[in-house]
Amino acid sequence: MPSLILKTAARYLLPLLLLFSVFVLLRGHNEPGGGFTGGLVAASAFALYGIAYGVDRARQVIRISNRDLIGIGLLLAAISTLLPLFFRDAFMEGEWLAYPLPAIGKVGTPFLFDLGVYLVVVGVVLTIVFTLAEEQETVEM
């Protein structure tokens, strides 16, 4: 059984780490970070929570199925590559909003792509960790 310390830590770390992962994602274009790193941080946060409280509760917190996250991520990335075609630009050319959004900064198709990467990484890591953790739980019971 996971210790009380782990449980308490996981509960408080989850929102903090998630916030941090979004921060890492957003600033990735200008500072170290990005979709891969941010996704890994977020996945670690959920994985920690899942190990502390059980996979079922972790799933309830996330709400969206991990495998759906993979699909959504791939779709977002794919859409971002196709959007320029509607502006009569080449495939994957970057399109940017004229004005930066507050808190997020300049928004363009590369950001959408990075968001897709983020979601794929979260989805894949959680699929792997939760699948394996669940097996262990069923045996322990």
């Binding site: 990005g34 970057g94 590369p110 792509f113």
Partner: peptide
């Protein structure tokens, strides 16, 4: 490409 982190710009652009 409007990005200061060259590694990330390579990855997403």
């Amino acid at each position: 490409a409007k990005g200061r982190n060259v590694v990330n710009v390579i990855l997403v652009d």
